[in-house]
């Protein structure tokens, strides 16, 4: 394990904190109806998206997921830009056509998210193929949840990516739930990293609530992919604090499981560590929190004062 500098740790903490505060704010906006549609919370799972993106170069790619705000923050998308899309504004990168769930932002290497789970996997592999073809030195991260692993696209794509030694890293955010059904009811193998062997691929498993662990494993995998040594499958074990979506009554879930999940907090865990290591003090932590909250508030104000996507936009870009 390489030594992570204090500065880098502080940066990771800031991204993690920003993701958490953004998520809390989005849930609030969802509840008041200002964010439309369905919202799938990433509370408790943030360390994965932040950890795997933090080591990417700006020109590297990652697909989005339906719990994907950590990816967007990790990829350093300005909050104003993201919030404009989340609130359906014309100056979001998708001009309010796709919203937060299908957030697509090529300027920051974010490849969007398909409605079908698994649809994004071959697309990400295709982007990696183009990177290899052009010898561009770029790397693609393809991230998805444990439920998606059961799609045929997972099998087809991992086989090909390994066979062609493509510059791609597969990251599974395993929260143990495929929507309303527990993993144990759907998966013959709950240790997803073990599937890598079937594709002659390197498989790794990490505690997805430990951001430094995620960061380190991602760093190695990204370096391997960039060198031309082929893909890695990284399984990040996490806990889902909320239901599948905000408002999900979770009648299918034992309340004790929810309680236990919420006790595993990647943010407070990392915060405690940085305080123990004297990288953060209570005072600097509070200052940071205030400034993050301010930034989010400014982003919301910016988005709210931006024009809403117009009727005409609905009919654009169907064809080139």
């Amino acid at each position: 394990m390489g030594e992570v500098s204090n500065e880098k740790k502080k940066e990771l903490f800031t991204l993690l904190l920003k993701t958490r505060r953004l998520e809390e704010k989005l849930i609030e906006l969802m509840t008041t109806g200002e964010v439309a549609g369905w919202f799938h919370s990433n509370l408790g799972q943030e360390a994965v998206g932040v950890g795997v993106t933090a080591y990417l170069e700006p020109e590297d790619y990652i697909n989005n997921t339906h719990r994907g705000r950590a990816i967007i923050i990790g990829k350093r998308v300005p909050l104003k830009r993201f919030m404009a899309e989340a609130l359906g504004r014309k100056n979001g990168p998708c001009e309010g056509i796709s919203g937060e769930m299908h957030y697509f932002d090529l300027k920051y290497g974010i490849l969007g998210q398909s409605g079908t789970l698994g649809g994004q996997i071959p697309v990400a592999v295709g982007v990696a193929l183009a990177c290899q073809y052009r010898k561009s030195d770029q790397v693609v991260i393809c991230i998805f949840g444990d439920g998606t692993v059961d799609e045929g696209n997972f099998h087809e794509s991992l086989n090909i990516a390994s066979l062609w030694k493509l510059p791609i890293v597969f990251v599974v955010e395993n929260n143990g739930w495929a929507q309303f059904t527990p993993q144990k009811a759907t998966a013959s193998q709950v240790d997803i990293w073990r599937k890598a062997e079937g594709y002659n691929m390197l498989g790794k498993v990490v505690d997805g609530t430990d951001i430094l662990e995620v960061y380190e494993v991602a760093r190695e995998a990204i370096a391997r992919a960039r060198k031309g040594d082929g893909p890695t499958l990284i399984e990040c074990k996490v806990r889902r604090w909320e239901g599948h979506y905000i408002g999900d009554p979770q009648k299918y879930r034992d309340p004790k499981d929810i309680e236990e999940a919420r006790r595993v907090d990647p943010l407070s865990k990392f915060q405690k560590r940085l305080m123990d290591e004297k990288i953060l003090t209570l005072e600097s932590m509070n200052e940071l929190d205030e400034s993050v909250k301010r930034e989010i508030e400014e982003a919301i104000q910016f988005a709210k004062s931006s024009p809403v996507a117009s009727r005409e936009q609905a009919f654009q870009n169907v064809y080139v």
Partner: peptide
């Protein structure tokens, strides 16, 4: 499915 999806990914790149 992968052939078609990979083609799409390569096309957008």
């Amino acid at each position: 499915s992968a052939i078609a999806g990979i083609a799409v990914g390569a096309a957008i790149s």
